[in-house]
């Protein structure tokens, strides 16, 4: 743990210092590759079985989990690998949802074209966000992405003639052949698995390693001759692209979008999923999404005070387990493994 007063360095070093924090540190690997294969196969089997074992409402919860897991992973690409925590990804996600619904309901276009347009719009938004935000790091990055996300929210709320204001846009988007729930479930499962694989590849590519290098020390990477702003720019854009893809799937799933889809709360929930699952673990996003969405539904069953529970979760996680559930488990396993060996 860093001493409380060592945050007096210039801005850049603050970014470096943040990288040391438990929040943005990749935990050690503990499972053997064989154990991981078994876990992976078990997960896949479980996911395939879902629509047959628990059809109806619970399957739709799993669909929601998969979509938000993708959003969480896209946030983790930046937070966990480049060390930049964004509070604007909910807005990028929601832009895609808005564009899809607008194109299909108001424009009467095809859902697949709408999907393309949605992802394109989200990517353009990510480009704009990235151009403004990559020069900052640490808290300033957080503030700036928060403010940019708020612009999107404000526009969606006030630009009534296009976005429908508070009422939002409503309409069935998904094509008819996806109407049956098991079909739709497998469509989402395949799409999100593909995106997860792509993000994993991206994070573990030489480019992803460069991002990790920037997280560890921006100045060192610059000295080594890496174009740091360009890498961050591309990293942000790719991350926004995946957030946009998740947003289009959400349009298919939800058939409704309102300003709350682009609100700060969306970014906050996505970030909490990342933190609960463990920053820099990528797959942790799935665990986090499952935990948060399951909890949200459980809590809503008993009380309407979900925001309060969410807030308390944030406080408790930050104080006791900033490395998240997966990170916590990994640290525990690593400690046990070390004791075992000695």
């Amino acid at each position: 743990m860093r001493p409380p007063l060592s945050m007096r360095e210039p801005l850049e070093e603050v970014g470096d210092a943040l990288a040391d924090d438990a929040l943005t540190r990749t935990p050690p690997r503990v499972m053997s590759s064989r154990a991981r294969l078994i876990v992976a196969i078990a997960c896949v089997a479980l996911l395939v079985a879902v629509p047959f074992v628990v059809p109806g409402y619970k399957t739709s919860l799993v669909i929601e989990t998969l979509i938000f897991a993708t959003l969480a992973m896209s946030i983790d690409l930046l937070a966990g690998y480049a060390g930049r925590v964004s509070l604007g990804h909910g807005a990028i996600f929601g832009i895609a949802t808005y564009v899809v619904l607008y194109h299909v309901t108001t424009g009467g276009g095809s859902p697949w074209v709408a999907m393309l347009l949605g992802v394109a719009a989200a990517t353009v938004a990510a480009v704009v966000f990235a151009l403004l935000a990559i020069r900052t790091s640490g808290v300033y990055f957080l503030l700036l992405t928060l403010a940019l996300g708020m612009i999107v929210w404000g526009m969606c709320l006030r630009w009534t003639s296009v976005t429908g204001g508070e009422n939002g846009l409503r309409g069935t988007v998904a094509p008819a052949w996806l109407a049956a729930q098991p079909v739709f479930y497998f469509f989402i499962l395949i799409a999100t698995s593909l995106m997860t694989w792509l993000m994993w590849r991206f994070a573990h590519s030489p480019f992803g390693l460069t991002l990790q290098g920037i997280r560890e020390s921006e100045s060192r990477m610059r000295t080594l001759g890496y174009n740091v702003p360009l890498h961050l720019f591309i990293g942000f854009t790719v991350s926004g692209f995946f957030a946009g893809l998740a947003g289009t799937l959400y349009a298919f799933f939800n058939s409704f979008v309102s300003p709350s889809t682009v609100a700060l709360a969306q970014s906050v929930e996505g970030l909490l999923m990342v933190i609960v699952g463990g920053v820099g673990t990528l797959f942790g996003g799935l665990v986090g999404a499952a935990v948060i969405i399951a909890l949200e539904n459980l809590v809503s069953f008993y009380t309407e005070r979900w925001p309060m529970v969410l807030g308390f979760m944030f406080i408790v996680t930050m104080i006791f387990a900033p490395e998240g559930l997966l990170g916590f488990a990994r640290t525990l396993l690593a400690r046990r493994g070390a004791e075992h060996r000695s």
Partner: peptide
């Protein structure tokens, strides 16, 4: 969460 800027921010958000 003293000293950890990011954790402080997220805590105040909660």
């Amino acid at each position: 969460v003293g000293g950890n800027v990011l954790r402080q921010v997220l805590l105040t958000l909660g």
